[in-house]
Simulated assay, not measured.
Amino acid sequence: MAKSPENIAIDQLDKDQMKTFSDFLMSYNRLSEMCFTDCVRDFTSRDVKENEEKCSLNCMEKYLKMNQRVSQRFQEFQMIANENALAMVKKTGK
């Protein structure tokens, strides 16, 4: 039995959501591992030391700010590329 267009769209949406969630988890895991490796030095206690906590928070904040800035720059470049493509289409008339 063939799938309806609505079912195909829902399947694609589910795949897109799973991909987005997977990407989020990969990024979160990468951040966690990176900050843990950089900040946690003492394994003799169960408690997180104040300097480790401070380091981890700074690490996370820097990573998120960097990620946000890269995303902004990417969007800026995409907008410029789209404007250039639109100008080229108008110029060539195609």
Score class of each variant (00 low, 15 high):
residue 24 F to T: 01
residue 69 R to W: 06
residue 30 R to A: 12
residue 23 D to Q: 10
residue 40 V to G: 00
residue 68 Q to S: 11
residue 42 D to N: 10
residue 10 I to P: 00
residue 76 E to I: 04
residue 37 T to L: 01
residue 10 I to F: 04
residue 34 M to E: 01
residue 41 R to D: 09
residue 55 C to S: 01
residue 90 K to E: 03
residue 72 Q to V: 08
residue 19 K to F: 09
residue 75 Q to D: 14
residue 36 F to S: 04
residue 85 A to W: 01
residue 61 E to D: 05
residue 87 A to Y: 09
residue 46 R to A: 14
residue 77 F to N: 14
residue 11 D to R: 05
residue 52 E to L: 07
residue 90 K to V: 11
residue 40 V to Y: 02
residue 56 S to I: 09
residue 18 M to L: 15
residue 30 R to I: 15
residue 65 K to T: 00
residue 51 N to H: 15
residue 21 F to Y: 07
residue 86 L to C: 05
residue 87 A to E: 14
residue 15 K to D: 14
residue 46 R to G: 15
residue 16 D to A: 14
residue 76 E to V: 10
residue 13 L to H: 07
residue 8 I to E: 13
residue 4 S to I: 01
residue 56 S to T: 11
residue 16 D to M: 09
residue 33 E to N: 04
residue 29 N to F: 12
residue 25 L to F: 09
residue 53 E to C: 14
residue 92 T to N: 06
residue 59 C to R: 02
residue 71 S to F: 06
residue 17 Q to Y: 14
residue 21 F to I: 07
residue 34 M to T: 04
residue 56 S to H: 05
residue 24 F to Q: 06
residue 21 F to V: 06
residue 63 Y to W: 03
residue 65 K to E: 03
residue 77 F to I: 06
residue 27 S to R: 03
residue 1 M to H: 04
residue 44 T to Q: 15
residue 2 A to I: 04
residue 43 F to S: 12
residue 79 M to W: 10
residue 74 F to T: 12
residue 66 M to Y: 03
residue 45 S to E: 08
residue 6 E to G: 04
residue 62 K to S: 08
residue 40 V to H: 02
residue 83 E to Q: 12
residue 45 S to K: 01
residue 20 T to R: 13
residue 38 D to S: 09
residue 48 V to F: 15
residue 1 M to K: 05
residue 9 A to S: 04
residue 63 Y to F: 08
residue 22 S to Y: 00
residue 48 V to E: 11
residue 11 D to G: 05
residue 89 V to N: 10
residue 43 F to N: 02
residue 26 M to K: 14
residue 68 Q to D: 13
residue 14 D to A: 12
residue 57 L to A: 08
residue 4 S to A: 03
residue 23 D to N: 10
residue 17 Q to G: 08
residue 44 T to E: 05
residue 12 Q to D: 11
residue 38 D to M: 00
residue 13 L to A: 08
residue 26 M to C: 14
residue 39 C to E: 06
residue 74 F to P: 07
residue 24 F to V: 07
residue 38 D to Q: 13
residue 74 F to D: 15
residue 84 N to V: 00
residue 86 L to Y: 07
